[in-house]
């Protein structure tokens, strides 16, 4: 039998896990819609609360696991599992204005009190977004899910930045880590967080 690379083994694992990742994503999205309904029903005309979910795609999951290894290479003599990732299933709650975060955060925290906090700092000692990961125990004890509560402008900026920086055109490879880009990113995030 020909030698299989770690990446090939992880791809096979991913497609075995995929139906379960989808179920966890649907479950978490549905639960969060339910838990935040009391806020959504009272929104003023200019206020918004959007809920977006995603299943982490196969190559992103493998790359995320690879980024956790020093030197960003897999050890061919070791075994890895994508289930060690905290966000195979993900839900993002986007809120405008940002001050509404104060209402949504405790509601969800109460429902997911055993989930692990992984807050996103804003670079000035404050908090940019709330992030938690854990298990939807009724559905899966294997797939970790993540939910984020993010000011809408920050979340929309992340969406643009993600497609430009993490899956870049070869000509832009590495630009996301340049000091100039970090400076610009910090400026946008501090503006959007207000």
């Amino acid at each position: 039998m020909p030698e299989r690379f770690v990446e090939d083994i992880l791809r096979a694992e991913y497609f075995k896990l995929l139906p379960e990742i989808r179920r966890v994503t649907w479950q978490l999205e549905t639960e969060i819609r339910y838990h935040t309904s009391s806020i959504r029903h009272k929104l003023r005309q200019y206020e918004q609360l959007l809920i977006r979910s995603r299943v982490k795609d196969c190559e992103s999951a493998i790359k995320a696991l690879q980024r956790r290894q020093e030197g960003r290479v897999f050890d061919p003599d070791r075994s890895y599992s994508l289930t060690s990732l905290p966000d195979l299933a993900g839900v993002r709650v986007l809120i405008f204005p940002g001050s509404k975060l104060k209402a949504a955060h405790p509601l969800l925290r109460k429902s997911y009190s055993d989930w692990e906090a992984d807050p996103v700092p804003d670079g000035a000692g404050g908090l940019l977004a709330h992030k938690y990961n854990g298990y939807c125990h009724d559905i899966s004890s294997t797939i970790r899910a993540e939910y984020q509560i993010v000011p809408m402008l920050v979340g929309l900026f992340w969406e643009v930045e993600h497609s430009a920086m993490y899956k870049p055109d070869p000509a832009l490879m590495g630009i996301g880590k340049s000091p100039e880009m970090n400076q610009l990113k910090a400026e946008v995030e501090s503006f959007a967080a207000v």
Partner: peptide, 9 residues
């Protein structure tokens, strides 16, 4: 780094 990681790098 393990021997495997060294080889890969």
């Amino acid at each position: 780094p393990t021997e495997g990681v060294r080889r890969e790098l």
